[in-house]
Design a protein around this nucleic acid. Structure first.
Length: 517
RNA sequence: GCUCCCGUAGUCUAGUCCGGCCAAGGAUUCGGGGCCUUCGACCCCGUAACGCGGGUUCAAAUCCCGCCGGGAGCACCA
């Protein structure tokens, strides 16, 4: 068996991907990210702030790698800060996600330097809120949410907006003391009700919630909103640059407004536009629902396009990194075909991935008049002899893909690397027990359609999970029996696959996950 | 509706800040050819773009104005 272990494959990738990647001819280099404004090597601090309600997906990869790239360039630090404030009834923290997200970072190759939980930091926000109040920057509003919204829309002030500092302090103390039920009072920033952007008018800083938090239970009743918590934590954690998607630009304004109010110089913000992968239209909340209902086979289901599922498919993290970094910090909202990612992956793995024969939807083919054939010694890779060889049973009968027998009825075809046969004029009958007889013609390597095959003797059952979540069963060549968890192969004329990571030695069928063509 | 952002080939992207070296570079896709016993890889060739209209200028993808198109936000979610 010449297949490489996962370890030696990684070594191979390091060799190929390392220096080779830097030896592109001048002018064809990937564009570099722009320099970070005011960045001092060695003292850059960045942060990732996922909300733990679902696994990281291909869209999150951009956040991961842009931040990681700058960390590398400036020898900085990258913190993982779980943004696990209380959320809402619809948007709850899922405690399982803390480990899953850390695992996602792990497989993405983006290890955090430190890990924080926002829910550990709630008391820190109270004195900051008090500072904002004392500067006259906030007031306690007791409007119902509906009226608050209407007033904001109409640029109309709520009665409390003009309350005195003393009254605000009293209201704030009452919030903290549990004197308000959820929804009865909020602390609002005093911006400008005439602000042309309705989204910016007197946003909420802190609110009351009695939802049960998976980490801290009901320990706190007053919770910060995202913008305020970051206005505080970007300062307290010493973040030097905030790199986030452009969907959060209003939040920049909020943070800057608060900092100006308190006389603080905060970090600058950089953004990127929305990235969508054409084939991965699914949203995170949809995936959450499908995983929860059991419709999806957990977060590693290929239909989620989660980081985990991409690893399962054998997509190398380096391919994901190059893919996401290739878009730079462009502010355009873009939709990219997955093929672009596949192209990156192929470039990385093609040369180090052994070839194997796999026959989906197999039909048994008997070849009349064929000579007796000795086992074949086939190269694991047509262009890379260093990947070794494997032995393949060559005598019939054979398994062939039903689709090919149908497509080539009556025609002469070549069983790849073996011999030529003339197929019968009738397509194979239905049913999996179908047997087809073909007529041997020659051994000569003629220019004919070349179809992959597997000798019945020694064939191994294979189950291939597809991108749509369905399984295809088929037959694979004998060498697949020795495959180990996590190994990648190219199934000839089918595509790249990866052996499922929970495979036990000798298990049949050999379970693989389809990666890409 | 209001606010912000974006608009370079099929899809991404470089160039736009500091106008000329851009009759626009790269990647990917697609088409053609070659090669290897894969629909994969590799090699060669090719198609293909500055959203529209004005203005400034000797000169505009780059600056100004208007329009059109696309996206996001307008939550006591993140």
């Amino acid at each position: 068996m010449g297949a490489l272990s996962a370890e030696s494959r990684a070594g191979e990738l390091a060799r190929l991907g390392g220096p080779a990647a830097n030896e592109r001819p001048a002018g064809t280099d990937r564009p570099e990210l722009p320099p970070l404004p005011g960045a001092i090597p060695g003292s850059v601090v960045l942060r990732l702030a996922p909300f733990p309600n679902g696994a990281l997906h291909i869209g999150s990869a951009r956040m991961l790698y842009v931040n990681d790239e700058y960390r590398r360039r400036y020898a900085g630090k990258l913190y993982l800060v779980f943004d696990d404030t209380i959320g809402s009834a619809e948007k709850r923290v899922d405690p399982a996600m803390f480990d899953i997200i850390r695992h996602d970072l792990d497989i993405a190759g983006v290890p955090p330097d430190e890990v924080y939980y926002k829910s550990d930091r709630i008391p820190r926000f109270y004195p900051w809120a008090r500072r904002v109040i004392d500067r006259g920057g906030a007031y306690v509003c007791v409007c119902p949410a509906e009226r608050l919204r209407e007033n904001r829309e109409a640029s109309r002030a709520c009665p409390e907006r003009s309350q005195s500092l003393e009254a605000t302090v009293e209201g704030w103390e009452r919030m903290l003391a549990g004197g308000y039920a959820p929804g009865e009072a909020v602390l609002r920033l005093r911006t400008d009700l005439a602000d042309p952007d309705p989204a910016f008018r007197d946003r909420v800083l802190m609110r009351v919630s009695d939802l049960d938090h998976p980490r801290v239970g009901r320990k706190y009743r007053v919770w910060p909103m995202l913008e305020f918590s970051w206005a505080v934590d970007d300062v307290e954690l010493g973040v030097t640059h905030v790199l986030r998607g452009k969907d959060l630009v209003v939040e920049d304004r909020m943070e800057e407004f608060i900092w100006r109010l308190l006389g603080i110089q905060g970090p600058p913000f950089l953004h990127w536009g929305l990235l969508r992968v054409r084939e991965a239209k699914i949203s995170k909340s949809k995936s959450v629902a499908e995983v929860r209902s059991g419709e999806f086979d957990g977060w590693a289901d290929p239909r989620t396009w989660s980081i985990d599922s991409l690893e399962r498919r054998g997509i190398h993290p380096e391919a994901l990194r190059r893919f996401t970094l290739s878009f730079g910090l462009s502010l355009s909202d873009i939709e990219v075909p997955a093929e672009t990612l596949y192209a990156e992956n192929r470039q990385l793995i093609d040369a180090v991935t052994p070839r194997r024969a796999f026959v989906p939807d197999p039909v048994r083919l008997e070849v009349e008049g064929a000579p007796l054939l000795e086992p074949l010694e086939l190269a694991n890779h047509p262009d890379h002899p260093e990947l070794g060889i494997r032995s393949v049973t060559a005598s019939g009968p054979y398994w062939l893909p039903r689709a090919e027998l149908v497509r080539h009825v009556g025609a002469e075809i070549r069983l790849k690397d073996l011999l030529n046969v003339r197929l019968p004029a009738e397509p194979p009958e239905g049913g999996s027990g179908a047997v087809v007889s073909a007529q041997f013609t020659t051994l000569a390597n003629k220019k004919l359609p070349r179809i992959q095959w597997v000798a019945e003797s020694g064939a191994v059952a294979v189950d291939m999970l597809g991108l749509d979540g369905t399984h295809r069963s088929g037959r694979g060549e004998r060498a697949l029996r020795d495959s180990t968890a996590g190994q990648s192969f190219q199934f000839e004329r089918v595509g790249f696959v990866r052996v499922e990571s929970n495979r036990t030695p000798g298990e049949e069928p050999v379970r693989v996950c389809f990666g890409h063509p």
